[in-house]
């Protein structure tokens, strides 16, 4: 009896959780005229017109490509820089290590709005405005600290005897790190990559400000549609659904590590 009450409560929660997403899916399968004229709980004449428009209009699909470019660059930069640092934090104590760790945390917590203006000026100086690289680099502000924290959590789970044995066997640090240690923490690397991907993918403010046309992310293209008069709800909903897909596809693989990633590796 008790178990059943729990299950019912959980099912109600999941229905409430999925309802807004379902509603957007419903909208995305209808034409704008249909949306505005009739109120229905499911699409009576489902159409893929909105999705077809997004996949055939370069001003729409280039937004997705741009987002993918800068997000991938960011994941690579974050992982490459964070791996050695996380190893240092998990294995060594050195001068100022705790303060450095705290300083990294402050950057994860800092409001992006504060960095907006100087970022714009900084990247203008180097002629990087409207490039994927600028957005990727600016997202390092919060993703590199996140990567260091999460990786450090995973690395601390590997016993140090492995390192000691390898060094006794005459492994150099780079060889040990690449051939023994990295394979040991590949789950951690995968989870970290996922979280870097995700936090870069969901960010809007910096991505929007640092781009104008060439590297404009899908998020910014969508907000432009919102501010236009007589906006197309069906198209907007379809674009929204497509931004959920990448996360939804890989979530299954990281399901057991979600708490760790969101809690900065502290769980």
């Amino acid at each position: 009896m008790k178990i059943q009450k729990r299950t019912i409560g959980l099912i109600i929660y999941f229905i409430l959780l999925m309802l807004p997403i379902y509603w957007m899916l419903n909208m995305s399968l209808r034409t704008n005229a249909d949306i505005l004229s009739t109120f229905t709980f499911y699409p009576q004449n489902p159409t893929l017109a909105n999705y077809i428009k997004i996949f055939t209009d370069p001003s729409w699909y280039s937004g997705y490509l741009n987002s993918f470019y800068y997000v991938s660059m960011n994941v690579v930069i974050s992982l490459v820089t964070a791996l050695p640092a996380a190893y240092a934090f998990s294995r060594y104590s050195f001068l100022g290590d705790k303060h450095l760790f705290f300083w990294l945390l402050t950057n994860r917590m800092a409001p992006p709005a504060v960095f907006l203006l100087p970022f714009f000026q900084l990247y203008s100086t180097f002629g990087l405005i409207d490039t994927h690289f600028a957005v990727a680099l600016s997202h390092c502000l919060f993703n590199v600290p996140l990567a260091v924290w999460v990786l450090e959590g995973f690395m601390s789970g590997v016993p140090r005897e492995i390192d000691e044995m390898a060094y006794i066997d005459g492994y150099s640090f780079p060889r040990f790190f690449l051939t023994i240690f990295t394979p040991l923490i590949r789950t951690g690397i995968g989870v970290t990559a996922f979280f870097c991907f995700m936090f870069s993918w969901v960010e809007l403010l910096l991505a929007r400000t640092l781009t104008t046309t060439e590297a404009k992310p899908i998020a910014a293209i969508m907000t432009r549609t919102v501010s236009a008069s007589g906006l197309d709800w069906g198209l907007l909903a379809a674009a929204g659904i497509l931004t959920i897909v990448p996360g939804a596809l890989v979530i299954w693989f990281v399901r057991n590590h979600l708490a760790k990633g969101f809690a900065l590796g502290r769980v």
Binding site: L17, W201, E203, A219, L236, G240, T243, I244, A248, N256
Partner: peptide
């Protein structure tokens, strides 16, 4: 776990869009 985590993976402006439509 997968269902619960889904809202966390949606871009923040799309969250706004979802709720505008809703």
């Amino acid at each position: 776990l997968v269902l619960v985590a889904l809202p966390l993976l949606i871009p923040w402006n799309v969250i706004g869009t979802i709720w505008t439509i809703f």
